[in-house]
Design a binder for these strands. Structure first.
Lengths: 365, 365
DNA sequence: CTGTTAGCGCGTTCAG
DNA sequence: CTGAACGCGCTAACAG
């Protein structure tokens, strides 16, 4: 019987033969039409498209991938999806990937090397064409397993060497300079900084951008106003508490990410200090929830959408050589978003149990 | 030459033939070994596993999918990934799916019917085995396109009829009753509710659970304390403002989701009222950021992880008939998480510009 | 410009 | 219990 198939009747899942039959052409012509090969007779193409439409046909991606060797799948490895930094990144990644005809495979490592291992395995098995590694940490085994399979990778900040690796540069300086100058203009001279964990490249970058910006305006930082945090709420709380306990805190605090800044807000709330009347606070990242804090948080924004766009384009450029006129530049800017957590510095230094302390005053009344 | 292949040397991407050759068996035996067919000679299996290990072989998912007709891909359609409700859901979905040997394809509709259309198209093209629709809205065309292709679907709350559809029930009542009783025990008698958009099934369910719980403790709700919101921050702000403007607000406010509750917090902050001293506030969903608000938000939790688990299992049960002893029950509980936005009711009703108003008092000093 | 044909890598009959 | 052969749906050569 040779090619005798059950699929002669209008099936739920029409294939290329069904289309060919209906359009009275060969499957090759259908294939060419779909793939926009220019040399197809317009009249036949017309028939093919019509058949495709009436059958509701769409090509089988698996079969396509099998024969072409390209899955049109892009991997996206992130640290932790519940970290508010990532959802927007994913959104952008999805949008840009789909625009370029790719689908995405997300997986999160939860900072667990073993999970990272699984992620890589999954990516490999699904035969992703490229992977964006947005974990802000350096992962040795990762590079090996994927690079060995000749899979293009893109990273943020860090730049391993290799023809298949791309890096997205982040211009931390610009936004951080804006933030420092914003505070200076308001009149702050006592500015503190809570960094991220300094083993992270991105955290070091932010800190040095801050130090530089401080230097630029002729200020010198008191060493005890430069503290290492850990990019978590708890870290922000405890460092701010330490600053408060020192008895001589700065009037403005900048942080290496928004969660830390929110921690600062919490510590200040507990200490019954007001923001921005007693302290100004500036975060970094401008995650969505920065708009929802009380007061809404002034923050240095790094466009997640831009970051995502760069990541997809970097991978695409590896996978589909672009016209020579195209000069890629994978760089994302940062900029200050002013909300209500920054204001003029307090006339007198804050002290716990001060009369300025609003809630306390009420509690006493 | 027949099957003369380039793949005779140790390639970067070993295939089943390479394994067969190294293990000195046929590809069929390799296939059986991988798929745990019991009738394989243990000695051969041993050799096969060893070969697999030394070559670093992993089966080609595309080819597998092509021949088996099953992609082991599950679709997950959500409204909006930046909505804090979803990241945790995705996390759980990913975990459970991977545990069951599935990969997931996420896509978000952004409440846009046209995007929804694209989502479906993408799912269809990638030949997903099943789809979880977690948008909390009813989507007509969706059902048709997917159901027509015989693809199992799972929904939350709503229950379309059909052998391929599953529904996950949410027991809103339990958690909401706990919340109402928590307030009652604290001494609140004046309890308001800000619902979600009432065209959403889930919003209506929450509201009716609230009304019922109020009735159970012998309270009757003042009609103007039952307001319709829209599940957004802005909605929460404006409804709370209206309540405040009425001159006779409740002492406790429950809301249909956390964003609304955060909006309430904002309105209260602007009105210079204190939480929980002047007003108690309870959210719903217990999204991650509920812990980070000032004060941390008391909220009714609906376990996203449990929801995700149910969704994956519901699909799996359709796809892989389970032993008859297995009786599935797709139901998720809700429960109250008490934080610091609830407390004893104020002795005297709140009034704007009251002496109780902390910040205002300070500003005047 | 179109149709025919040979695999892509694997699961699955069916003889042995 | 094992191996040879077929075909999943499609693209890419090649022949017409």
């Amino acid at each position: 019987m040779g090619r005798a198939k059950r699929n002669t009747s209008a099936s739920a899942r029409p294939d290329i033969h069904a289309v060919a039959r209906l359009a009275r052409v060969s499957i090759a012509t259908v294939s060419r039409t779909i793939n926009n090969v220019a040399t197809v007779d317009p009249r036949l193409a017309q028939r093919v498209w019509k058949a495709i439409d009436t059958l509701g046909y769409s090509p089988n991606t698996q079969a396509r991938a099998l024969v072409s060797g390209r899955s049109r799948l892009l991997g996206l490895i992130i640290s932790e999806i519940t970290n508010p930094f990532f959802p927007e990144l994913i959104q952008g990644f999805e949008d840009v990937a789909v625009q370029n005809g790719y689908e995405i495979l997300i997986s999160s490592t939860n900072y667990d090397p073993q999970r990272m291992e699984q992620c890589i395995q999954r990516m490999l098995e699904r035969k992703v064409d490229g992977v964006a590694v947005m974990t802000f940490g350096i992962e040795g085994p990762l590079l090996d397993r994927l690079a060995q399979r000749q899979i293009p990778l893109v990273f943020v900040d860090v730049a391993p060497n290799g023809p298949l690796f791309s890096t997205i540069e982040v211009d931390y300086r610009h936004g951080i300079r804006e933030a420092v100058q914003h505070l200076a203009v308001l009149g702050h001279r006592r500015i503190g900084f809570i960094s991220g964990p300094l083993h992270l490249h991105s955290a070091r970058e932010r800190q040095s951008a801050f130090l530089r910006a401080i230097g630029e305006i002729g200020l010198k930082l008191r060493p005890d106003w430069l503290q290492e945090g850990n990019h978590t709420l708890e870290g922000g709380i405890s460092v701010m508490q330490k600053l408060l306990d020192s008895g001589d805190p700065p009037t403005a605090i900048m942080t290496s990410n928004d969660m830390t800044a929110i921690g600062v807000l919490h510590a200040l709330y507990k200490a019954e200090a007001r923001v921005p009347e007693d302290f100004s606070v500036i975060g970094f990242d401008d995650v969505t929830i920065a708009q929802f804090t009380l007061p809404p948080l002034t923050s240095v924004q790094m466009s997640r959408h831009e970051l995502a766009r760069c990541a997809v384009l970097a991978l695409r450029d590896h996978l589909e050589p672009q016209p020579s006129s195209y000069v890629p530049r994978y760089k994302v800017q940062t900029k200050l978003i002013v909300r209500q957590s920054t204001g003029l510095p307090a006339a007198r230094p804050f002290r716990r149990g001060n009369s300025r302390n609003a809630r306390k005053a009420v509690a006493q009344s």
